[in-house]
Each structure stands twice: as structure tokens, then as C-alpha cells.
Amino acid sequence: MKGSPFSDRNSKTSDKTTINVTDGTLIPLKDEGSLLSAWNISFFGAIALLVLLPILSPDPYLHILSFVPDGLVATFSVTLISIFFALLIGLFAGLGRISQNRSINRIATVYVEIIRGIPLLVQLFYIYYALGPLLRLEGPSAAIVAMSVCYGAYMAEIFRAGMQAIPRGQMEAALALGMSRSMAMRKIIIPQTIRIILPPIGNEFIALLKDSSLVSILAVSDLLRRGREYASTTFRYFESYTVIALIYLVMTLFFSRLVAMMEEKLRHRGKVH
């Protein structure tokens, strides 16, 4: 007699259902009161500063606030477009990582290894300055290509881990009920994978939002660059960068909270066992 229901070789043990978060802000959970209040202090504190500073001293804070929205649009465009392509690349590379086909598997694995071994800033420089002239890439497109290719590798690992976390018995049970392989994928495997990978994908989105500030180097007028432009014409470095930092903080804290809520919601239905 076997002690655990999952000691059977037909069902893979999956301790890795929750994929660890290594980046981003601390995520508040319901049962962690102290974290929650830390989140409250940072989030509402930052918002309060962003509201109070322009009221108390309109020059320069109100000017800064009216100067940066363009940058916010650019930051979000780069982030959203990059995350879209990163998801696409990640899905295929992730499937490649679990493929039985040796060469596909090898290509996907090499891609992931190379990309994860090179800092994003170096990749940005490489694509913009080294390949840019060959590929004729403008700043924004180079930024998007670099971010997509880079985050695609991380997404690939999330997709791979997510699909491998589904026990083999799930597919077998579906087949045994007369489902076709593709129906089993659609009705059984993919819904469970999505529940597992949504939170880590949310966290990658937040990380990408922050990393998108790197593209300000490539002549992309994102949030950070707009702040820099303002600062360099007015010499209000302290005020400009304070506002920029606060805006990033509000955004990342806000999205972390969303991810945490999503995780909470998925928790009771998303478990594999």
C-alpha cells in the first residue's frame, strides 16, 4: 500500500504549482496584516504626496505632472506591446522546452539560456547599437524587440513550469473518457495551466513595467526620459525624479495588488490537487 495518493508513477508529484516570485514589490496577502499595512503606507503615502505636492507647491510639481503624461503613454505602450510579444514567444519557446523533438527542444533551451545569461541593458544596447543599423530599427521598435525577446525567455520558463505542473493523470483521465487529445488540451490541461501561470505572468508584467525605464536610453520618450528632459531644462532634479519615482511606485504597487487579488481568487479553484 502506498502512503501518498500521488506516489503512483502515472501522476507526477508537483510541488511547484506555485511559481516563485523573485521580483517586484512585496505582495500583500490577507493573512499578513503587517505586509498589508506596509502596502497601505507606501501606496496611499505615494498617492498623497502626488496630490499634496502640486497643491502645496504648484511650481514645479504641477508643471512636472503636466509634463510627464506623454511619457506614461510611451511607457505603457512599450510595456503592453512587449508583454504581448513576450507571451507569444514564451508560449512557443515553452512548448519547445517540453517538446519530445530533440532539435526543437535544443533550440528553445539554448534561446532561454542565452537570453537569461545576458543583462537586459546589454541586450538593449546590442539590439539598438550593434544590430540596429543592420535591422534599421528605430528606438521604440528596438526597445520592443529587445524587451520581447528578453522577457519571452522568462515567459517560456513560466509556460514550461505551468504545463509540467499538471499531473500526467489528468491527460490520461481525459483520454480514458473518450476525449481527443486536442479536446483534453482545451478542456482539461490549458484551463489548469492558465490558473497556475496567471499570477507569475502578472509579476512579469510588473517587472517589465519597471524595466521599461531602461528604454529611455534608446531615445524613447518614456516616463523616465520625460522626467529627465524636464529636469535638464529646469535643473529641478530633486523634484522631477521624486515625481517620477512616486509614479512608478504607485503603478507597481497597484498592479502587485491586482496580481495578489487574482492569486487569491484563483487559489481555491486553481489547485492541481
Binding site: P5, D8, S11, P167, G169, A173, L177, Q192, G270
Partner: peptide, 26 residues
């Protein structure tokens, strides 16, 4: 396979579906 029912050691219920949906899906 429609005509051959199988019961596994590890149950293999579909965790994202309610009990009723597990039974009615196929």
C-alpha cells in the same frame, strides 16, 4: 474508450471543475 470506464489509483478528478461538472463533461 467511451465504452470502457477507468478508475485510477490517484483519482485524477479535474481540479478546476466542480463534482457535477467532472461527471457531466464527457
Amino acid at each position: 474508450r467511451e465504452e470502457v470506464g477507468m478508475v485510477f489509483q490517484s483519482f485524477n478528478l479535474f481540479p478546476h471543475l466542480t463534482v457535477l461538472d467532472n461527471i457531466t463533461l464527457a
